[in-house]
Design a protein around this nucleic acid. Structure first.
Lengths: 95, 95
DNA sequence: ATTGTATGCAACCGACAGGTTGCATGTTAC
DNA sequence: GTAACATGCAACCTGTCGGTTGCATACAAT
């Protein structure tokens, strides 16, 4: 499944990953451990989601000292905007 | 998984289903049996994909005589446009 | 009425995704 | 140097997804 389209849509298909994108959009940057406090799952699960998002090019990571901070890539930020627009669109149509 | 966002992204995550959307966009309407000729899978598999797309509100069906014809909904057509735009966008960025 | 075509339904199967636990490793603080 | 913290890695479990086969049903044509 190396087609970028598959990777992007596959990454966005999971609601938890979309929420991670939302969190990163709000806060700019976060670690897997920090995000664990916001989601009902273990740190390792969050780390897997971040790896999936990174594989799709929506998120990038940088190791600083003992922690790894994640942030949205430009593409990821664009998708966050698209998602917001889509939600507004669906609300408008009352779907 | 009843959130419309999940349904839409889940439906679009599969490349075969995106291809079905493309075919329906070109031809306007098709039956499961017709689409089977274009995809490397059985009619029942195609029918399942169409059911998934219908569940996400991207496709609608109408039974006429002994065949069931499928066409894109307005939402589905919009998504076909968004996909085209996305592909062009990715190409432009050489991703 | 019988035959061919199109669909629908259900059971089944292999693969993978999401999640967990357990442990090893690296890094900071004291 | 030792304790605490953050991460990474691997094995494992379970449910779902994409796909198949087999069969029953509905409609059309002759």
């Amino acid at each position: 499944m190396s087609d970028p389209l598959n990777l992007v849509f596959g990454a966005l298909a999971d609601p938890n990953r979309r929420q991670v994108i939302g969190y990163l959009s709000e806060r700019g940057t976060a670690t897997a451990t920090e995000l664990t406090g916001e989601l009902p799952m273990t740190r390792q699960a969050v780390a897997k989601h971040l790896a999936t998002l990174a594989g799709a090019g929506l998120v990038e990571s940088e190791r600083r000292g003992r922690e790894t901070r994640y942030r949205l890539t430009e593409t990821g930020a664009e998708w966050d905007d698209r998602l917001d627009a889509l939600v507004r669109h669906l609300r408008r149509r009352r779907v």
